[in-house]
């Protein structure tokens, strides 16, 4: 099954959304992304029992931090879907892209000094 989703969405694979900590999210914003969303398993269906519920709480906390920082918590979301729901994945990707487009580019784009790029080099 091939599904189309916007090419501007870059996927970072993790074994479980429970692995995503606040620092990871903040570092993504430091590197200049316009928005971040987590695609976790359906609630109650986490292989590690509570990973997606933890992620949900962390996302809520990180939203608060982003509000304080001035980027706005709306640039961060958490979605739940099962691995069988390819359609839903594409739908969410489109929905989030629309939402972030409406918010405009991140005000910190390319402005944070000392950020490591994906090859571990400091820009």
């Amino acid at each position: 099954m091939r599904l189309n989703y916007p090419t501007n969405v870059k996927i970072v694979k993790v074994p479980c959304t429970g692995r995503v900590d606040i620092l990871l999210i903040l570092h993504a914003f430091e590197s200049g992304v316009d928005g971040v969303y987590l695609a976790g398993c359906l609630e109650g269906e986490c292989h590690f029992l509570r990973g997606n519920l933890r992620a949900k709480k962390r996302v809520q906390y990180a939203k608060k931090l982003l509000d304080e920082v001035g980027l706005g918590g709306a640039r961060l979301e958490m979605y739940n879907m099962s691995s069988a729901q390819g359609q839903r994945f594409a739908e969410v990707a489109r929905e989030m892209t629309e939402k972030i487009k409406a918010l405009g580019p991140s005000p910190v784009k390319n402005r944070v000094r000392g950020v490591q790029d994906s090859r571990g080099q400091v820009k």
Partner: peptide, 24 residues
């Protein structure tokens, strides 16, 4: 250590948003 990381990131993001420099 984690809180150091989070605070540093918050400070950098917020300064960057206002177009101001900070080195931490």
């Amino acid at each position: 250590e984690r809180e150091v990381g989070v605070l540093a990131s918050e400070l950098k993001l917020s300064r960057a948003k206002d177009g101001q420099e900070i080195e931490i």
